[in-house]
């Protein structure tokens, strides 16, 4: 819990500041919207968290989101596939992408940055090539499938506010991820790989398999995220769908306490990190004197402050732990 203290503080500060500065912030409509965006981006961030845990990085997320987001309406409307077929193929394709990228990292010994940077370009290129750069939409059909992205779950007794459906996906994915990371041998070992790949190897831990698994999970969640995104907005343009999403995902993970050097991070932290990003983007739109064009600058600054605050708290905690131990021994 100590690990996410810094980011929780920042989250609360931004929420309070924005609600003072803008009367439209704490409205049912806006909160619903924020929850939806946080859930969608949170899923991507949880995914990239697995890769960061093994001291890797996945820059291909935006490309995978794009490919999945484009292919979903394409397969349904242009190819006439059924919804279950489409979803199954999209998810399988996503896992295969992660499997390949992870394999190149683990066995090809190519740096993750390079592998996934190339992936980012390749997957967007494929998406644009397949569709000839044409915007893909659901043509007003497939409402049942689209519910997972744009659905609203009404809460009994509450009139104005409903729970956005992607929150369900986020909660399920978050719980599964927490169970995997905290309760299973493979989860523990994945952290070990990030902490010290050589110590992991000398302990007989299947380092390569775990790396491939991490990239597979990441791409699977990216693909699933792309599916949710397109279901939410209804159509996708191959040239810009999912642009920069890998950076939002990585930023949220880092804000949430993941260390790029590997081995450390918590799922709850990532979700709060994703929430900070979304509230921030929301604040820039809502607060009139903040220029919308400065969005990236503001987000960049807040991430920097967040990481610094986190590092500061961490050192403080580490020092205290050390003094206490010395004092008792």
């Amino acid at each position: 819990m100590k690990k996410i203290l810094g980011i929780t503080g920042i989250f609360l500060a931004i929420v309070i500041a924005t609600s003072i500065l803008s009367p439209n912030f704490l409205t049912a409509y806006n909160i619903e919207n924020l929850l939806r965006r946080t859930s969608l981006f949170g899923i991507l961030s949880i995914g990239v968290g697995f890769v960061i845990l093994t001291a890797g990085i996945d820059l291909s997320i935006g490309g995978v989101v794009c490919l999945a987001g484009i292919l979903t309406p394409y397969l349904l409307t242009q190819m006439g596939w059924s919804a279950p077929e489409t979803v199954a193929v999209i998810l399988l394709m996503s896992v295969a992408i992660g499997f390949l990228q992870g394999g190149l990292v683990a066995f090809g010994r190519i740096q993750p940055f390079l592998v996934t940077l190339c992936g980012l370009l390749i997957f967007r290129g494929i998406a644009r090539g397949v569709t000839m750069d044409q915007t893909q939409g659901f043509q007003g059909k497939f409402a049942e499938l689209r519910w997972i992205g744009n659905g609203r779950i009404s809460i009994p007794g509450v009139e104005e506010f409903s729970l956005p459906a992607p929150v369900l996906s986020l909660i399920i994915i978050a719980i599964l991820s927490m169970i995997f990371l905290n309760c299973t041998v493979w989860g523990r070992w994945m952290k070990a790989v990030g902490r010290s790949p050589s110590a992991a190897r000398y302990s007989g831990i299947p380092v390569a398999r775990l790396q491939i698994l991490a990239y597979s999970i990441c791409s699977l969640l990216s693909g699933f995220g792309g599916l949710l995104f397109v279901c939410d907005v209804g159509s996708a343009q191959p040239s810009d769908f999912g642009n920069f999403y890998e950076l939002y995902a990585i930023a949220a993970a880092v804000l949430g306490g993941y260390r790029l050097s590997g081995g450390e991070g918590s799922v709850v932290g990532v979700i709060i990190g994703a929430a900070v990003m979304q509230v921030l983007r929301n604040a820039i739109v809502l607060v009139s004197w903040l220029p919308y064009t400065a969005e990236f600058a503001v987000i960049g600054l807040v991430i920097l402050i967040g990481v610094l605050a986190d590092e500061f708290l961490r050192r403080y905690a580490a020092n205290r732990a050390r003094t206490q131990v010395k004092g008792t021994s």
Partner: peptide, 30 residues
């Protein structure tokens, strides 16, 4: 470099091999 995950606790380091041997369906027995 090769024997320990220095930033982790004694428990994590000492049990890293054993947890797999006594696990049930891949779950660590805390």
């Amino acid at each position: 470099r090769d024997g320990l995950m220095l930033l982790d606790s004694v428990r994590i380091n000492a049990s890293v091999v054993k947890i797999a041997r006594e696990s049930i369906a891949g779950f660590i027995r805390r």
